[in-house]
């Protein structure tokens, strides 16, 4: 297949895929989800693409960014100070978007707005590495599960 007949996509900013311009969204999903059905999100959109749209009609000239998800929404739980808050997000929402929501929640003790930049999200089983803010939260959802849990904590910060 020639390059003109395909469109390049970055999937979760980690891998490159090329799809023919005549490929339908539902076919792309099957490829990206190993044969499972699901939803496909383009760029920063939190709304999934229609399943019967063909790639050539997306208006992409050079390359696009995709996220494929088995769940239309994710039930996100954020834990902080032995308490938790829940909210529904699109799987294409970024870690930063969830963090921004979480730090603005009414916690006890409350998080001063001036202190909010110090916070990051972490996976419950790995308290070491702060999650990258640009990552799609759907990449952290276990297969077959529409729930994902993060811990909110102060990130490692240099001291003078």
């Amino acid at each position: 297949m020639s390059e003109q007949e395909t469109v390049q996509f970055f999937v979760d900013d980690e891998k490159v895929h090329h799809f023919g311009r005549e490929t339908r969204v539902r076919e792309v999903i099957l490829v990206l989800l190993d044969g499972d059905e699901g939803h496909l999100f383009l760029g920063d959109s939190e709304e999934p693409l229609e399943l019967d749209i063909i790639i050539g009609d997306l208006g992409i000239e050079k390359h696009g960014h995709l996220h494929a998800a088995r769940c239309r929404h994710l039930e996100v739980t954020v834990e902080y100070a032995a308490k938790s808050r829940k909210h529904r997000f699109s799987p294409s929402a970024t870690v930063k978007a969830v963090r921004d929501w979480a730090v603005a929640e009414n916690w006890e003790p409350s998080i001063d707005p001036a202190e909010r930049p110090k916070f990051a999200l972490f996976l419950p089983d790995d308290s070491k590495d702060a999650l990258p803010g640009t990552r799609r939260i759907g990449t952290y959802a276990p297969k077959g599960d529409c729930n994902v849990t993060f811990e909110l904590a102060i990130r490692e910060r240099p001291q003078g």
């Binding site: 970055f10 980690e14 891998k15 490159v16």
Partner: peptide, 11 residues
């Protein structure tokens, strides 16, 4: 690689 290329022109 994709992680760098995907952000070129953006970040």
């Amino acid at each position: 690689a994709a992680p760098f290329q995907s952000q070129e022109g953006q970040r």
